[in-house]
Amino acid sequence: MLNDVTLGQYFPGESAIHKLDPRMKIIITIIYITAIFMAKNIYVLSGVFAVNIVIIALSGIPFIIILKALKPLAFIIAFTFIINIFSGEIPLFEIGFMRIYLDGLVNAVFVVVRIAGLVSATSVFISYTTSPAMLTDAIERLLSPLKKIKVPVHEFAMMMTLALRFIPTLIEETEKIINAQKARGADFYSGNILKRAKALIPVLIPLIVSAFRRADELATSMECRCYRVGEGRTKMKSLKYSAGDFAALGLAAAFITAIIILPEIIGGIG
C-alpha cells in the first residue's frame, strides 16, 4: 500500500552522477530545466531529450524506476496532450465532429516531452542519486548567503533532514500498525467513504502517539549530545567541489548556450 512512495527515495550507487557534488547537481538541474523551456523548436527539444536519456543511462537508475516516477503524472500528461491537439490553426484530419490540428499536435508533443523531461531529470539528479543528508546539506550551503538577512537557514535544513530521515521510519511504523490492527479484524477496504475513514482511526492514533514519542526521544538524544543551533558548527563530511564538478558545470553551460544560439544559426541558414 505504501511501497509506491518515491519521495526522498535514494538509490545508492557509484555512478558519475552519484559522485557529483550535490550543490552542483542542484545548479545543473536548474540549468537543465531552463534549457527544457528555452527549447523552442523540435530539433532542439529532441536534443534536450536525448541529453536526458544520456543522464538517466549515466546514473545507472533502471528506466522502469523513472517510469514509476512519471506514473502519478500520467493523468496530467494525457490530459494536456488531449487538450492541446484540439486547438490550433492548421487542421490535420477529422474524426467525426472532432478536428485535430497539426500545430496542436506539435504543441502537445512539446508539453509532454517537457513534463517528462522535467520530472525525470529532477528525480535522477536530486531524489534518486543524492542521499537526503547530502541534499539538505547542499541546500543549506546554497542558501547560506540568506543567513546575512537573518533567515534561519541551518534550522530549516535541520528540520528538513529530520523530516526526510523519518519518512521511511514512519512508513515502516504505519505498516506495522496496519498489520496489528488488521490482525484484530480492522477492515480498511469495505464500506462507504465515511466507514473507511473511520477505519483509519485505529492506525492514525497510534501513529501520531508514536511520532510524538519519537520526536521526544530524538530531542532528548540530540540534547544529550550537546546539539546547539548557532555559529561555528562544523561538518563531519564537508562538501568540496572536485574537477569533475566544474567539468559538469562547464558542459551544462555549453549546453544551454548551444540551446540559445543554435536556433538562431539554423534560422539564419534557413
Binding site: E173, K176, I177, N179, A180, A183, G185, P202, P206, V209
Partner: peptide
C-alpha cells in the same frame, strides 16, 4: 495483500504490542 480467510483464526502479538493501543 492479505487473506480474509485467516481473519480471526490467527492472532498475532507483535513486538511492542502496546503501540497498537488507540
Amino acid at each position: 495483500k492479505s487473506s480474509e480467510k485467516m481473519k480471526f483464526k490467527a492472532g498475532i502479538i507483535f513486538q511492542y504490542p502496546e503501540y497498537q493501543l488507540f
